[in-house]
Design a protein around this nucleic acid. Structure first.
Lengths: 280, 280
DNA sequence: CTCCGCATTCGAGTTACTCGAATCTATTTT
DNA sequence: AAAATAGATTCGAGTAACTCGAATGCGGAG
């Protein structure tokens, strides 16, 4: 085949954006940006010229590059239209009531989870996080919940790279694979200080009509007031909520119902957008 | 010159993204997308393939395209790092105290203003808005405040397209130009139901070290409890706050001090990033 | 079962990107 | 204050990668 099936220009442009994103508050010079993204200096300059004009990137007075406001405009649009978020919100609020702890909603992209919503507990010692944060799949409750429900091929893909040992309790390799099987069986994941010391979470997948884990939610709390036992106690309520959210976005709820889900895909596809439009 | 100074691939990719953004909750098919963005179907397909893989766009079960979560991740990063937002926040909160009404912070991109922060009043009848919203320049308080401070060339650029008459009071043409001169002179803008009936706003520009209006903020309220007189009464406090924010991000504060601002640009440029890093 | 729309594939043609070196501008050093 | 340095920007040749239109294949609708 003469031409590839994707656009390398687009890929490179987003590599540039990602490189800017990773540099943080200080910004980054054009030269360094080109280096990080692996393109020639003049190429980077040309791409960046377009991105500046679009407001996707910005330059400060010193000439360093930063992310631009256009990204905020697009993200705002996304959050407003996201049916999953609208559908899940009341259930997540209910879960905050039940657990008394902060609940997050996230979606997998690549081998990360992006937080797209948050309902905070009223307690004074809360965990800091923000919508838009990205966390790894392999060491978080939401991430493991998603991994556990992926088919073999996708799971292998997501775990292909070297896995960070963020804490002494982080699971990798065979131990992680075994854990994922357990999670798949019981329906929920526990992050036992595997991502951040002093923080425990319970995470559950949200399945779409095709039986794919399209999102997840988690309850997070300081480990000292959220024991492993508390995690297990909370699980039944959380499972019920996961089922309800999944059903609401069109998942045929039988356990091993991949085939059934597949058959009902057409109808579900037409109904899903409407479900998203409602506010309940 | 053989090669242009910007990348048309990047431009087109964002035209696609913009087209998806404009379609709203229902999503858009590939064919229509190609039409709106003005590219061939197969081209759109290639770009979209990359954008899907990056998580910038997403497909629902019916095959329609939507915005993707990667945008949320990037926007979250932007908001976290934005020095202006951090610098302005305490002052905006103070302005909410003084006025009792909701205050917004926004940045110009193209001929729109994007909301990047919001501090809500405690009153029960509040205006709905969200971070990431885009509003026109010519008929909003923030927009007019920015327009008034632009140099002749940029102002003309921003007003080049046909201007929407959003309400009967919207100003266009000569009346708008005259109004902008008044705004420049007195330092603040008033949106007297020019963008939305029943809503009045007072808007002020935030200037950077080079004397350019890089942002604006506004106080918005239902017209029935926020008269034109109220707007003028609030102005002095708002002006003081605008000056303080501008100074904090590095603007040499003298009134007609464009030249002085220009002379001090080098020093300011070096200091500005540090000022942005602080949290006060 | 057939029709129809839309996603996807394919190959030829050419635009628009890549690279390295030169130039210009701004900042730092002596 | 002048020279030195680093980085941004321009430039031109070469070619990889994109654009287009048509053909194919898949899934939904009648």
């Amino acid at each position: 085949m003469r031409s590839g099936r994707k656009s390398s220009s687009v890929d490179k442009a987003f590599e540039l954006i990602e490189a800017v994103s990773e540099t943080g508050r200080a910004g980054i010079t054009l030269g360094e940006l080109a280096g990080r993204a692996g393109v020639a200096l003049s190429t980077a300059h040309r791409y960046v010229t377009s991105l500046l004009e679009l407001g996707v990137l910005d330059r400060d007075a010193a000439g360093s590059y930063h992310l631009g406001v256009t990204l905020v405009a697009l993200a705002g649009q996304y959050l407003e239209e996201d049916g999953l978020r609208a559908a899940a919100r009341p259930f997540l609020a209910e879960l905050v009531e039940i657990s008394g702890e902060t609940v997050h909603l996230g979606t997998p992209v690549g081998n990360q989870i992006v937080y797209i919503d948050k309902v905070e507990s009223a307690k004074s010692v809360r965990l800091v996080s923000r919508i838009g944060s990205r966390v790894p799949l392999h060491c978080t409750a939401m991430g493991k919940a998603v991994l556990a429900m992926l088919d073999e091929r996708r799971r292998a893909e997501a775990l292909a790279g070297p896995l960070d040992r963020r804490t002494p309790r982080t699971l990798v390799g065979g131990a992680l694979a075994a854990e994922l099987d357990v999670i798949r069986e019981r329906g929920f994941a526990i992050d036992d200080e595997e991502n951040e010391e002093g923080v425990r979470c319970v995470g559950l997948p949200i399945m779409n009509a095709s039986g794919q884990p399209v999102a997840a939610f988690s309850v997070s709390a300081p480990a000292n007031r959220f024991s492993l036992e508390d995690c297990h106690t909370l699980a039944p309520s959380a499972l019920a909520i996961a089922t309800q959210i999944s059903r609401r976005i069109g998942y045929a709820a039988t356990r091993h119902a991949a085939a059934a889900a597949h058959r009902s895909r057409r109808r579900a596809a037409r109904h899903a957008p409407n479900a998203g439009g409602g506010d309940l």
